[in-house]
């Protein structure tokens, strides 16, 4: 078992293996994503209250889900790197951060675009929007620490610890923002009571969520491949790889 992990987590093996894996994620992501978008934008019925503008949730909700999911992946792999000293785990964590930050940003932008027709303004200090914004700051902190320490091992360890501290904090931040919101301004935001979702809306939403997950898997592999190559730029296997070309 241990040997197997050692073998799989060697950068060279990962480099060869991931090249084969990427299409298996990328192509389904594309197909499911296009089909999900088609169902969401053309087939699903308009909402009885929000009309057509609710359709942005087919991007917004999966992006928001992914923003948390990627942070979890990042923290778990950083933890694996910290505890078992598996370098590949650090590579995955470092490769995940910008992707997660992009998903968070996407969720924020689509959220405020949706807010304009619904709330009459691009930004309200709604609990979810606020905690999403703070999550973006957590990503930025991780990336800033990662890039400002020169020694790669140190940078991985330090930012990995920060990611774990962040995971402990995320629920606290989330709930305190939620309570703050209800304490402060409960009534000023016209909140729609969510009607349970119609099945024709739910299916495209779940399809889009699946497509986003697959997309993330493909992109993180591409980024981790690059990162592994860059980090091992002075090693023999990379040199041999270059000489072959």
């Amino acid at each position: 078992m241990w040997n197997w992990i050692q073998k799989f987590s060697s950068p060279k093996y990962f480099y060869d293996m991931s090249a084969k894996l990427i299409p298996w994620f990328a192509i389904p992501a594309l197909v499911i994503g296009v089909y999900g978008l088609y169902l969401g934008l053309f087939v699903a019925p308009p909402d009885y209250q929000q009309g057509e503008s609710y359709r942005i949730i087919f991007i917004h909700v999966p992006a928001a889900w992914m923003s948390l999911f990627v942070y979890m992946v990042m923290a778990i792999s950083a933890g694996i790197g910290l505890i078992w000293q598996i370098r590949l785990a650090d590579v995955v964590a470092a490769a995940s951060a910008p992707i997660g930050a992009s998903f968070t940003f996407l969720a924020l932008v689509t959220g405020s675009l949706w807010g304009k027709p619904m709330w009459g303004t691009y930004w309200v200090w709604d609990a979810r929007l606020t905690s999403e914004l703070i999550l973006l700051f957590l990503y930025f902190g991780y990336m800033a620490l990662q890039s400002s320490i020169e020694d790669q091992r140190q940078a991985d360890k330090a930012s990995g610890l920060l990611a774990i501290v962040g995971v402990v904090n995320i629920p606290i931040i989330h709930y305190s923002v939620e309570w703050w919101n209800t304490l402060h301004q409960g009534a000023t935001v016209a909140k729609f009571d969510k009607p349970s979702m119609h099945i024709d809306m739910l299916i495209p939403l779940l399809l889009m969520a699946l497509a986003f997950k697959l997309f993330y898997a493909a992109v993180v592999l591409v980024r981790a491949r690059n990162e592994a190559l860059y980090r091992d730029r002075n090693r023999r296997w990379v040199r041999e790889l270059i000489e072959k070309i």
């Binding site: 703070i134 700051f137 902190g141 904090n169 931040i173 305190s176 923002v177």
Partner: peptide, 8 residues
């Protein structure tokens, strides 16, 4: 950058 979000 690191500490302020945790202070919220």
């Amino acid at each position: 950058l690191i500490v302020l979000p945790l202070y919220i």
